[in-house]
């Protein structure tokens, strides 16, 4: 599904990712954990094609296709999705209008308005959102929790093949976390893969990962099953730095 090899990324001259490699198979949920500054958000932005980052080396393949030269919208149409940590506000554009435009731009054939309406209602119900929410302007004045729910709502509407979730759990209370997790689990199946990027193990209680990777200083330093997340919770990132810090700097 997703294959990243020897990825080197710079922003404003500083190297953030230093030879990162990762393979995500079809239907798999991967968690990438790491301390602040390890390059987690850079990875999610680069995967989706943010123009501010310079990829200096390496490859990113999605379903066997090299996506490195593709714009974000082209990647979205292939089935990639990024749940943003800090989604932008777009004043004057309602959530419903945005969802309609987005869904129709990734689909080959436009969805009939009534069907669209029904779909929005259905997905909002899963996310336990008030129907009035659809008329609010996109992310404007949203609380942190509302923004994250709105991200997952978009994911449910767009039905991507691969979702990258950039610290979707940060700043969420336990109720919101459960709702967000429910949204992700809704899509879980043989055709859906996800990369959950997080600082904490907490979200992994609700979305059980198949694989856990630890990221440090721009690369993945160790991988394992879901137990790795628990070990990390017990021992903390200092343990990772001691164990793998020297390797990361070599």
């Amino acid at each position: 599904m997703l294959k990243i090899d020897n990825l080197h990324v710079e922003i404003e001259g500083g190297e953030i990712l230093k030879g990162l490699g990762l393979e995500v198979g079809k239907g798999e949920i991967h968690a990438i954990m790491g301390p602040n500054g390890s390059g987690k958000s850079t990875l999610s932005n680069v995967l989706m094609g943010h123009p501010r980052y310079d990829v200096t080396d390496g490859t990113i393949e999605f379903m066997g296709e090299d996506v490195m030269e593709l714009e974000a919208d082209e990647r979205a149409r292939l089935g990639m999705f990024l749940a943003f940590q800090y989604p932008s506000e777009v004043p004057g554009v309602s959530v419903a209008n945005f969802l309609r435009t987005a869904v129709n731009s990734v689909r080959e054939k436009e969805l009939a308005p009534m069907e669209m309406y029904r779909l929005i209602q259905e997905k909002m119900k899963i996310m336990q959102m008030d129907p009035k929410f659809a008329e609010r302007y996109l992310n404007e004045g949203f609380s942190g929790g509302e923004k994250k729910r709105n991200e997952i709502l978009q994911m449910l509407m767009l039905e991507p093949k691969l979702a990258i979730m950039d610290e979707t759990d940060s700043g969420l209370d336990i109720d919101a976390l459960q709702v967000v997790s429910k949204g992700v689990n809704e899509l879980r199946g043989p055709e859906f893969s996800a990369v959950i990027i997080t600082h904490y193990q907490r979200i992994l209680r609700y979305i059980e990962p198949d694989h856990v990777h630890v990221m440090l200083d721009g690369r993945i330093v160790t991988s394992g099953g879901k137990d790795l997340a628990l070990t990390l919770e017990d021992k903390g990132y200092d343990w990772v730095r001691q164990e793998f810090g020297s390797a990361a700097q070599s």
């Binding site: 989706m48 149409r77 996109l138």
Partner: peptide, 23 residues
Amino acid sequence: FYLMSRGLSEEEAIAMVVNGFIE
């Protein structure tokens, strides 16, 4: 980038921001 990541082309994304602005 946010709008384009949802499948809107650059032109559509700018138009959406502009339409929202004059809403």
